[in-house]
Design a protein around this nucleic acid. Structure first.
Ligand SMILES: [Mn+2]
Ligand SMILES: [Mn+2]
Ligand SMILES: [Mn+2]
Ligand SMILES: [Mn+2]
Lengths: 220, 220
DNA sequence: CATTATTTTTAAGCTTACTTAAATTTGGAT
DNA sequence: ATCCAAATTTAAGTAAGCTTAAAAATAATG
């Protein structure tokens, strides 16, 4: 079995499906850094072996079997991340890339043993939910992008996007981490940048950064 | 980097070089379960990129750089094995296959951290030495194949070949493990099979099995 | 609704790592 | 020295997963 590419495609499809369970080919190409032509080829293959439902020019959706497979890949990835962070002591801005390589190698039995060692974590180091062996996905608390908060609003970081280590390193430096309280002190109209307060200190961040940090709003 | 095949070839060459540091193509083909033609192709590639010295019809040997690379692969493999056995609790007949997949994925930093967690083990679960980060290889104590022991001789198991899980499972069942004392009670000329005593119990084993168990002879 | 712009697919071609079959070289055994 | 068998290489071809360039379909805009 040398399904590394297939598995990456399936994982991406799972993670980026919309409310209708559909993904556009374009997005896959971008996320995997390959050409659109490569995506079309792989979609045909995934369709042939029953992992996705694919019709020319239509949106892509996972079959039941494909969903199971893809969800398991996400599970593998996130359990590796927790292991690397918790047991190995690797910082959260490094675990994603490392896990992305390991996710294709270990057996399911190994993953299960790691999960047991970690006492069945529900979330990975970036706040993403970890599907259980049975396929149950822990619910995420209600949340919004930090970029959507109004001036004066406050909340707690409950998830961050994990796909760019530069980004993670940057927000770590300014003190943003899971469960950290954040207050929006100022919001500027012209570039949508904001000033936030973390651990009592003020920081200016771009809208792009704020779009990748997710907040549970503090009701007062 | 997607050097999985290259890395496997280099690892095999390193592990099977003779006293002159040479390996025959045939052996590589057998160990990797590929055709001789495939081996020739890869040897050319490894020669091109400076990992081996290769001349048509001559024995294969690692360059200095190739040796470093190959030794590191063996290191990665064996550290994974110890980790899986010690930390994850996986039996010694399962760790080789699992490690063989993981060895290509993790970063060197991860390997170093695992090594630290394991307190710098010198040997893997089958008694094979683990090269250090600096490339030093722990010495193996003087040993012989169990098959070479004469009737009445006794000794201690210090290494077993790890490439066949059926074999490992079998010898586990009869109580053979690292540091276990063994006595040759009887040796039969016609098929070279032997009767051995392990933990007070007698067992009949084939010559083939005895060839893959290595013994430090007890001097009396 | 006609015309761009964007997305997606086709077509042709490349690289890696394999395969089988045939040719060549080598190392023994007589 | 000759012959044979085993080891190795060459030749030709395949499958996976990419690429770029061009064509076709769909979506967005005036
Ligand atoms: Mn991740
Ligand atoms: Mn991956
Ligand atoms: Mn091994
Ligand atoms: Mn390997």
């Amino acid at each position: 079995m040398q399904n590394i590419s297939e598995e990456d495609y399936l994982g991406i499809i799972y993670k980026h499906k919309d409310k209708n369970g559909e993904v556009k080919a374009n997005l896959i190409a971008e996320k995997l850094q390959v050409s659109n032509a490569a995506v079309t080829d792989m979609l045909k293959k995934l369709s042939r072996n029953g992992h996705i439902i694919y019709e020319k020019y239509k949106g892509i959706r996972l079959t039941e079997g494909g969903e199971v497979y893809a969800k398991n890949m996400v599970r593998r990835h996130r359990i590796w991340e927790v292991f690397l962070n918790q047991i190995v002591g690797m910082p959260w801005d490094k675990v994603h890339d490392e896990a992305h390589r390991l996710e294709h190698s270990g057996s399911d039995e190994l993953i299960d043993r790691l999960e047991e060692m970690l006492e069945y974590p529900e979330y990975d180091p970036h706040g993403d939910p970890i599907p259980s062996k049975e396929g149950k996905v822990p619910k995420l608390r209600k949340h919004v992008q930090l970029a959507e908060l109004k001036q004066g609003q406050a909340g707690t970081v409950i998830r961050v996007n994990d796909f760019d280590d530069q980004f993670l390193q940057y927000i770590s430096k300014i003190g943003v981490k899971l469960n950290e309280p954040v207050l929006v002190k100022e919001k500027r109209r012209f570039d949508k940048s904001l000033q936030i307060i973390v651990k009592g200190k003020p920081w200016n961040i771009s809208n792009k950064v704020a779009e990748n940090i997710f907040i549970e709003i503090k009701k007062k």
